[in-house]
Design a protein around this nucleic acid. Structure first.
Length: 522
RNA sequence: GGCCCCAUCGUUUAGUGGCCUAGGACACCGCCCUCUCACGGCGGCGGCGCGGGUUCGAAUCCCGCUGGGGUCACCA
């Protein structure tokens, strides 16, 4: 599988350039975002797949920050990136925060390293001074009948010493471009797409250093990968067209002794939003933290993200983190774009929520209930006791944790504070007052020590179903509304048990009062 | 426009020449379970973009077309 290209290196030498053939523990992958904005699910999916490759092979996962754009980078964004990876449990072996043999791991702190490489590149003739401005390049293309988008024409490659001196005399400062040998074939075998061919001569020289001396992403990204010994580069599909340029740079880096191999590349499919457009940063669904706020648990979101372009098996799509990286193979990543489907995502998340132990689930609910104002912040011991009983009632009813707030709210207020869902009272059947009266009587008759859901059910069934000859639906509907204020609620008898007898009777009283019924048992 | 990538149910994915009258999941629709809603169970709806080849045989291989996307920065 390892590609090996024999290439002629211009007039300098004939070199045998090999792509990495690292396997097992020698595999080194990286995640190298720029800290601009909130973590995007597509970006995190890329991190996830890289992490999975490292864990699958027992290799290393390197976390590097590409903060070379002072205008757009922010410390807040950096913190969010760390937060996102940590939350999902994507731990890194080397990189920011944990250190490692290739420190520093923030590009903003690696300037001296780049300068050194640039000097070597210059000395070996791999880069040259380019004075062309964008306007001049366009003008030359138009003048010679080429489309404007043709791009750079390698004009400055052949500038004489004299011409360079003249430009300098005009006060112009040169950018540095990589000289790509005309006869260099830049094809490669993509880890997810197979052979991709970029014939010799199809790639023009590109800028690697700004006139002010600042190295660009085009240089710094491959240089750091080379310096850090990265063997497999998994990144977004949008970077596919820049791969031939990077391979050309690698040839130069090998020539000057910075590294000895070219990493293998794998281009991951886009994560799409609505329509045929890539999920944009503006789209709320792209925001990882919004999903967390909605109540995705890390296990669930990780599982769903893994499904974006990959499949666990033919008949299963719910799996654990360990099962994921054990089964993951880059070669089985699907090359076509995946659409982010929040319905499916929530279904997967719901499956993970149901798999939680009751205690674990209960604990994870707390922050959501606190921020929704359902319980105090921090939660009181009394509220915690109610929650411990109530949480299991909703565990199989939610697919995201935030849903529990509306389901559980009625348990954390008293009868007078209970709010009724819109239209719920109007929707009650004509016989509702009679049902409520009978229910009240039956419950009131129960000794307090028997106030358990099974006995409550017995009492209510006896009075309403057997006594009034109602269907269970007609019998319990009005009671449910009185107790929860809603049409749909957690299991009724268990809810009554949690509320206790006095509170339950108070709620029945309150709803009966709405109908002007006489107070039972005066 | 040049170059590059992609193409199986609505969505996602299985399928690497015969196991496919194309399998699973989500969504949707029925039914069952049932105190509501869920969960769970059962069933249904629904797909290989088109045209040529290769082959005894093609969703699978080749070519073309069509469609979609990306990229052509002194941004990353």
């Amino acid at each position: 599988m390892t590609g090996c290209h024999r290439i002629r290196w211009g007039r300098m030498s004939t070199t045998s350039v090999v792509f990495s053939r690292a396997t097992g523990r020698d595999v080194r992958v990286r995640f190298c975002p720029s800290p601009t904005g909130t973590p995007h699910v597509g970006l995190i999916r890329t991190a996830l797949f890289n992490w999975a490759v490292a864990r699958h092979h027992g290799g290393a996962f390197v976390f590097r920050i590409e903060d070379t754009d002072a205008a757009r980078d922010s410390e807040q964004s950096y913190a969010q990136l760390v937060d996102a990876l940590s939350w999902l449990g994507l731990d890194w072996d080397e990189g920011v925060g944990v250190g490692g043999p290739h420190e520093p791991y923030r590009q903003s702190e690696r300037g001296a390293l780049y300068l050194e490489v640039i000097d070597k590149l210059k000395a070996a003739g791999h880069v040259y001074e380019s004075y062309s401005t964008a306007e001049e390049i366009d003008a030359r293309n138009e003048g010679s009948g080429r489309p404007k988008q043709h791009g750079y024409d390698n004009f400055d490659r052949t500038l004489s010493t004299q011409q360079r001196a003249e430009f300098r005399a005009e006060g112009r400062e040169p950018a540095l471009r990589l000289r790509i040998p005309d006869e260099l074939d830049l094809s490669f075998t993509d880890l997810v797409r197979g052979d991709i061919s970029y014939p010799a001569g199809g790639t023009t020289d590109f800028v690697v250093v700004r006139p002010n001396g600042a190295p660009l992403y085009t240089l710094v990204n491959p240089v750091d990968d080379a310096l850090m010994g990265i063997t497999h580069v998994l990144r977004g599909e949008d970077l596919l067209p820049s791969t031939p340029r990077q391979i050309a740079l690698y040839h130069a880096l090998i020539d000057i002794g910075v590294t000895t191999f070219v990493p293998r590349f794998g281009h991951l499919p886009y994560v799409m939003g609505e329509g045929n457009k890539k999920l944009s940063k503006r789209d709320p669904e792209s925001n990882l933290f919004l999903h967390r706020e909605r109540g995705f648990i890390p296990e669930g979101l990780l599982n769903y993200l893994a499904l974006l372009g990959w499949g666990f098996s033919a008949d299963r799509d719910v799996f654990s983190r360990e099962e994921f990286f054990t089964a993951f193979e880059v070669s089985s990543v699907n090359p076509n774009p995946a659409r982010f489907d929040h319905k499916k995502a929530e279904a997967i998340n719901g499956a993970h929520i149901r798999a939680l132990s009751a205690a674990d689930f209960t604990g994870r609910l707390v922050p959501y209930l606190e921020s929704a104002g359902i319980v105090s912040t921090p939660i009181t011991a009394a509220q915690e006791a109610v929650l411990a009983e109530a949480a299991p009632l909703v565990q199989e009813r939610v697919s995201v944790l935030s849903e529990a707030s509306t389901m559980l709210a009625f348990l954390f207020v008293d009868a007078s504070g209970l709010s009724y869902e819109d239209g719920v009272i109007a929707a009650l059947p004509a016989g509702a007052p009679a049902v409520l009266t009978a229910a009240h009587a039956a419950l009131d008759r129960m000794p307090g020590r028997e106030w358990r859901h099974d006995r409550i059910e017995e009492a209510l069934r006896g009075a309403l179903v057997d006594g009034l000859g109602l269907t269970p639906r007609a019998a319990f509907g009005p009671v449910r509304t009185a107790i929860s204020g809603r049409r749909v609620s957690p299991p009724l008898f268990e809810s009554l048990q949690i509320l206790g007898k006095p509170e339950s009777l108070a709620r029945l009283d309150r709803l009966m009062a709405q109908f002007g019924s006489p107070h039972p048992l005066g």
